[in-house]
Design a protein around this nucleic acid. Structure first.
Length: 657
DNA sequence: GCCAATCATCGATAG
DNA sequence: GATGATTGGC
């Protein structure tokens, strides 16, 4: 391996001695490359790959890094343990569940199941009833989650984030308690439990801590600015046996405040370790100077100054453009034409990305892309594994694996006519608590759904022997479920082929439990996603959140308008607006050379009303005129130009504004 | 008491 | 477009 390709600061990080090390890495400064070299270097120094733990934010990031390490030091690099905090926690908790009083065969609920369980608890406790409108189940779960992820009391979370429910702290707490009891009784964890329980294990059980941390000789954490209190605690405790903890991050790119992340973790990190080493990576290898000039100006517009100046190694390039468009239709038109123009100019679509604040911002564009036959892959938003029919099939598999899974019963029983929420819950709970957890269909003789339940019970019996063979089991379940689909969904036909993906995923797993819990925290890829010949022609569509750490030659940023980006929810909240600014910073710094921002004059906003035209993210940027070139999209001319300045005037008078 | 159908309201980002 | 509150039927 050659260290020649690294600059001095990167080399210092790569070859750092043991101990705590903070690497502050601005956008595009070679953070990934540094981490890759660090891991490779450790292996070359004789550290066993299995003793290195690389915690990243997404599975995608972990895999990419390990690929690159493997390219340098060989396939043994695969033994490096990598992944998200949640995935790591899952593995550790499987081994130490007993210690914490949990069954080792626990399963993991995704967000939707967790919400449903909260919903059931809420109605059980009677908070759903009339009187005053109570928080919806998703909100209740949000509050509970925020409380554990930020170490704040329910009351504090309510006062800070949901003042309208400030008087209901007791109710939230009661729901939280019952919810927690139920999870443990049923042997299911939600995402937060994975972190909470791992932290508890490491904090309160010295033997487990010693064992886990001595297996993790070197702990590296990527994107540390986006960790929350629990994750930071886990990282520190996990490295307690040796203190070899390297964290990498950029406080200016903190964009997960909404789920409890705190920049304090990275800012205060040095206080934890008196002899910490700190390395700053400041030379930007990714972008041209004009892109960075805009990025710097964006940061300057933040209330909390970060005093960061990105310096380009690449030199000059075109100015970023702000293209004014009328509405989303116009925007889709402008972006499609721009993508094609860039392709014609030699930038393949695979080196272009369209980024946006919220997943739905790209809907209209997606229809245009289909018309234009531009293949794309979308990241963020609704995932394949979250589609209702996929979750249905998985619920059946869960029942095979664990007949006491009350939430799976709840979901499955909901398919049958005449069988509603109450009865489903009753049946599910009864089975979960029975000595022999089977569905006794006979007792529903005379009911409309008697025959359906008999069939279900028979099928489950026939699948039970397959529990040791994930693929056969999943295939059998899917085959039966296919037949039921038309009675559950009007658009069953469209959903059918998605089910093919499940057996393929199952093939990669030795056990049903491993299949199910992986699927819960690491959503399935759509095996049917249209894959045209060669990856060359696939455009990336992504939420800004999911674009983290990635880069493209050309970046198109959508919906720069109040209510779009920034989100309507942030407009009246200073700290939320700060996060919107950092989001814009992240988006801008994804671009290597071409950066096109579209600014629609009119957007259909969801959320709080009273959103006017304009983009309050761009307004406070000083010298914006010098930093970007302004264009207007003219749908008639089919090109962006300054020629149709009167377009808006005409439109305004047309709309009488 | 429970279920299905209807109307009103609120809506993001992710593991 | 989903969730929740309401209504009307068994």
């Amino acid at each position: 391996m050659s260290l020649d390709e690294l600059n001095e600061a990167q080399r210092a990080a790569v070859q750092s001695r043991d101990g705590a090390h903070l690497v502050v890495a601005g956008a595009g400064t070679g953070k990934t490359r540094t981490l890759v070299h660090r891991v490779a270097w450790l292996i070359e120094q004789g550290v066993a790959p299995g003793q290195i733990v690389l915690l990243t934010f997404t599975r995608r990031a972990a895999e990419e890094m390990l690929d690159r390490v493997a390219a340098q030091v060989g396939p043994e690099a695969r033994a490096v343990r990598g992944g998200t905090f949640h995935a790591f926690a899952l593995g550790a908790l499987r081994r130490f569940a007993d210690t914490l009083g949990w069954t080792p065969s626990f399963t993991v609920m995704d967000r939707e199941d967790a919400e449903d369980m909260v919903g059931l608890v809420r109605s059980e406790l009677g908070y759903a009833e009339g009187k005053q409108k109570f928080a919806r189940k998703g909100t209740v779960l949000d509050v509970l989650s925020r409380s554990v992820n930020t170490h704040k009391t329910i009351q504090e979370v309510l006062s800070d984030q949901y003042p309208q429910y400030g008087a209901f702290a007791d109710a939230f707490e009661a729901i939280g308690r019952r919810y927690a009891e139920r999870k443990q009784a049923h042997g299911v964890m939600d995402y937060d439990d994975l972190l909470v329980l791992l932290a508890t294990l490491l904090r309160d059980h010295p033997e487990a801590r010693r064992k886990l941390s001595s297996e993790a000789h070197h702990v590296l954490v990527d994107e540390f600015q986006d960790t929350n209190r629990l994750q930071a605690e886990i990282a520190v405790l996990l490295s307690s046996a040796h203190g070899n903890l390297m964290v990498v991050g950029d406080e200016a790119q903190s964009i997960y405040g909404f789920r409890g992340a705190s920049v304090r973790n990275i800012l205060d990190f040095p206080k934890l370790f008196p002899d910490i080493q700190i390395t700053k990576l400041e030379e930007n290898y990714r972008s041209t100077q004009p892109v960075l000039d805009l990025a710097n100006a964006v940061l300057d517009s933040a209330r909390e100054g970060f005093h960061k100046r990105l310096r380009a190694v690449r030199g000059e390039g075109p100015l970023p453009r702000i293209v004014d468009v009328i509405d989303e239709h116009d925007q889709a038109d402008a972006v499609v034409k721009r993508i094609l123009a860039l392709r014609a100019a030699g930038v393949p679509v695979s080196k272009q990305a369209v980024l946006f604040r919220s997943a739905y911002h790209s809907f209209l564009l997606e229809t245009r892309l289909v018309e234009e036959e531009i293949a794309f892959k979308k990241f963020g938003g609704m995932r394949f594994g979250e589609a209702a029919h996929i979750k249905d099939a998985l619920a059946l598999v869960r029942l095979v694996a664990n007949p006491r899974d009350a939430m799976a019963w709840f979901r499955v029983l909901g398919w049958f006519e005449g069988l509603g929420e109450k009865t489903a819950q009753k049946i599910g709970d009864a089975i979960a608590n029975a000595d022999d957890p089977v569905l006794d269909a006979a007792q529903f003789k005379g009911r409309k759904y008697h025959a359906a339940l008999l069939d279900l019970a028979n099928q489950l019996d026939s699948w039970a022997p397959l529990v040791m063979e994930p693929v056969s089991c999943v295939e059998a379940v899917v085959a039966w479920y296919r037949e039921r689909m038309p009675s559950i969904y009007d658009d069953a036909k469209r959903r059918l082929k998605d089910l093919d993906a499940l057996p393929l995923v199952a093939e990669r797993h030795q056990s049903i439990e491993s299949f199910l819990s992986t699927v819960a925290i690491d959503p399935i890829e759509d095996a049917n996603a249209d894959r045209p010949e060669g990856d060359d022609e696939i455009l990336t569509l992504s939420t800004i959140h999911s674009s983290k750490g990635l880069e493209w030659e050309a970046v198109h940023l959508l919906q720069l308008a109040d209510g779009g980006f920034p989100s309507a929810w942030s407009l009246d909240d200073d700290s939320a607006m700060e996060e919107e600014i950092r989001l814009l910073y992240v988006a801008v710094t994804r671009a290597r050379r071409e950066l096109w921002l579209t600014r629609p004059h009119f957007v259909r906003t969801r959320g709080p009303t009273g959103v006017g035209p304009g983009c309050s993210l761009l307004e406070p940027i000083e010298h914006l005129d010098d930093l970007v070139e302004f264009l207007r999209h003219d749908p008639e001319a089919g090109a962006d130009s300054a020629a149709s300045e009167d377009l808006f005037r005409r439109l305004r008078s047309f709309l009488d504004m």
